[in-house]
Design a protein around this nucleic acid. Structure first.
Length: 283
DNA sequence: CCTGCCGCCTGCGCGC
DNA sequence: TGCGCGCAGGCGGCAG
């Protein structure tokens, strides 16, 4: 469940259900799930067994469970789920790693259809795993520096949507929330970053924060059963999307038909009237 | 350095 | 009905 609101919902679920519990064992059911762990699946399992989970933390779309000084790091990729449930329930086809606990209570299953997600063990990573040190703070946390972000944007020479998706610049935003934020701010996805005026950047940051916060309150965005919390439940924000996935439908602000453009082998949705295309591709 | 493009995967819905 | 294609909430690595 890719973007910040969905990952944060999962983090809260983990915090509630696994904090203070001790992992008995992890069974790695697909080697790709631990491909970042250079020493292999057996070594990963040995490092995790017997460790007590101190909580659940997040940076951008990455999650980690501190265990002593170390961390169990997770990324959900495009289709990953972390599901808590009765250990006796059937093992579904896409479970990639299966954690059981010493208290014999609810287990934890990393489930991932497309296997873009992964888990790894990071020694000394409890505070912030070194492997994700390049990920910027997200716009909802106090550590996010608006001024530094604005300066970085104006130094950069690319389209604004590309920049919003760059997790080393600002984290937590993916394809859905980039489009929704740009729509709220009235900015076209191809607008050049170096031409953005300070007031436009301020407007964009406000839009990003509103969209992420609203989605969080709604429990995240789900179009299907792939994007669920640790109990397998879907959020409701898809009902409130203004442009994402709504090509041909009326813009909620002006009624103009939403358009879809090809963008980075994917899509960019926008309102042709509220978000006019920059002239000469640069303004 | 920086920016943009490609590949990694599975499954679904669509048109032929 | 079957098959191929395009598409899907992501990221790292690499070429230019």
């Amino acid at each position: 469940m890719p973007e910040l609101p969905e990952v944060e919902i999962v983090r809260r679920g983990l915090q509630q259900y696994v904090t203070g519990r001790t992992i008995e064992a992890v069974r790695v059911l697909h080697p790709r799930a631990v491909r970042w762990h250079a020493a292999g699946a057996d070594d990963f399992a040995a490092a995790i067994a017997g460790r007590r989970i101190a909580g659940a933390r997040r940076r951008g779309k990455y999650l980690w469970l501190p265990v002593g000084e170390d961390a169990l790091l997770a990324h959900l990729g495009m289709s990953g789920q972390l599901l808590i449930g009765d250990p006796g329930r059937p093992l579904s086809a896409h479970v990639r790693a299966w954690f059981t606990f010493t208290d014999a209570g609810p287990d934890l299953r990393f489930t991932d259809q497309r296997t873009f997600g992964h888990l790894c063990f990071v020694p000394g990573g409890a505070e912030l795993p070194g492997t994700i040190a390049h990920i910027a703070p997200d716009p909802l946390e106090p550590a996010f520096d608006d001024g530094a972000f604005a300066a970085a944007l104006r130094r950069r020479r690319s389209g604004i949507k590309r920049a919003l998706l760059d997790q080393s610049l600002v984290s937590g935003i993916g394809n859905i929330y980039a489009d929704e934020s740009l729509w709220r701010a009235g900015l076209h996805w191809a607008r050049r970053t170096e031409t953005l005026r300070p007031a436009e950047i301020t407007r964009l940051l406000r839009a990003v924060r509103e969209v992420l916060a609203d989605a969080l309150v709604a429990g995240g965005t789900s179009f299907d059963s792939l994007y669920v919390n640790v109990n397998g439940e879907s959020g409701y924000f898809s009902r409130r999307l203004a442009v994402y996935g709504r090509a041909g439908s009326p813009c909620p602000r002006c009624g103009t038909a939403v358009r879809r453009d090809a963008f980075m082998n994917r899509s960019a949705y926008s309102c042709p009237r509220c978000q006019p295309r920059p002239r000469h591709g640069c303004w």
